[in-house]
């Protein structure tokens, strides 16, 4: 019994010594020790997503590979997410320049990797600007109370709290009325819809059919030229162009109708937009 304990101790110490020898001789490949250490080249937090661009190495010798990794963390659900190298500078891309990630769920971590090969020869050491582009389709949503009072209720001077909400979005929708709420039964009210790009990216245009207004029963459409009416829905029937980050303003004329003395209902606007974010990182390209 005593003998076997001694044998166990001896074998254990032999094993430990052997592992240590192998470790220092480099015979065992510990993956974490030799792992590539990506360095953070850029990180941005926008309304729709957070992204980080990491590279390895930060200085690239001729003919060597630059590994570029993009981490995307959407703050809301995004569709048709595409990450591409829009300008590889003097590098050539090993594989696809464009990676389609499809739909990404909010608060998930998603990685895209590109391998870029440095040219075999350059005349001068240089700082190469590699440009990336992230495109996606995101949705926006705005919800507001529409309060219509009968004449008698309005005269009674009741105060009505109007609640409004909207999802944070690179495309900000600002809704306003020509008169203050609550409206009086039978009066005509203009509603103005303003679109604003508050993000750092580009919205080319808002496409036809991509904005839907769900009307409450206490508003009746009298004229809403930019939108086609389908029952209680108004659907954008033209392209909205953006100039200097602002879309053309839409104006709709409604007649307020109180279906009860105090009629408070919801108006919602839902839409989707294509967004493009351009960014770049600087990588030093060595001469030799």
């Amino acid at each position: 019994m005593k003998m076997s304990e001694k044998t166990i101790k001896t074998s254990a110490s032999l094993c430990i010594s052997l592992i240590l020898i192998l470790f220092f001789c480099g015979c065992i490949n510990f993956p974490n020790i030799t792992a590539e250490k990506f360095s953070l080249a850029k990180e941005k937090h926008f309304e729709d997503l957070h992204y980080a661009i990491e590279i390895y190495p930060s200085t690239v010798a001729p003919g060597k590979i630059l590994k570029l990794r993009v981490l995307l963390e959407p703050k809301k659900d995004l569709k048709n997410v595409v990450v591409s190298i829009s300008d590889p500078c003097l590098f050539t891309i090993d594989g696809e320049a464009e990676k389609n990630l499809g739909s990404l769920k909010a608060n998930t971590r998603n990685y895209v990797r590109f391998d870029l090969r440095a040219p075999n020869h350059i005349e001068m050491e240089m700082n190469c600007k590699i440009k990336l582009r992230i495109t996606y389709i995101a949705s926006f949503n705005i919800l507001t109370d529409v309060a219509v009072l009968s004449e008698a209720e309005k005269l009674a001077g009741n105060k009505i709290a109007i609640s409004k909400s909207k999802l944070p979005s690179a495309l900000d929708v600002y809704l306003s009325f020509s008169k203050e709420q609550p409206f009086i039964d039978g009066e005509e009210v203009f509603m103005y819809i303003n679109y604003r790009n508050i993000g750092n990216g580009i919205i080319g245009e808002l496409d036809e059919g991509n904005v839907v207004i769900d009307l409450p029963n206490n508003l009746r459409v009298k004229n809403c030229g930019d939108y086609a009416q389908f029952g209680n829905k108004l659907i954008l029937n033209k392209k909205i162009l953006f100039v200097d980050n602002r879309g053309e303003t839409s104006a709709c004329l409604f007649e307020a109708r109180a279906n009860s003395p105090i009629d408070i209902e919801k108006l919602s606007i839902n839409g989707k937009y294509k967004y493009e974010i351009d960014d770049s990182i600087i990588v030093t390209l060595e001469k030799r």
Binding site: M124, M126, N197, I202, G204, L241, F242, D244, N245
Partner: peptide
């Protein structure tokens, strides 16, 4: 497109003299 979005900027190039 960049001008429409108010994102257009003139770029000042860097020249590296050896």
């Amino acid at each position: 497109t960049l001008q429409r979005n108010g994102k257009f900027q003139n770029y000042v190039p860097t020249q590296k003299v050896g």
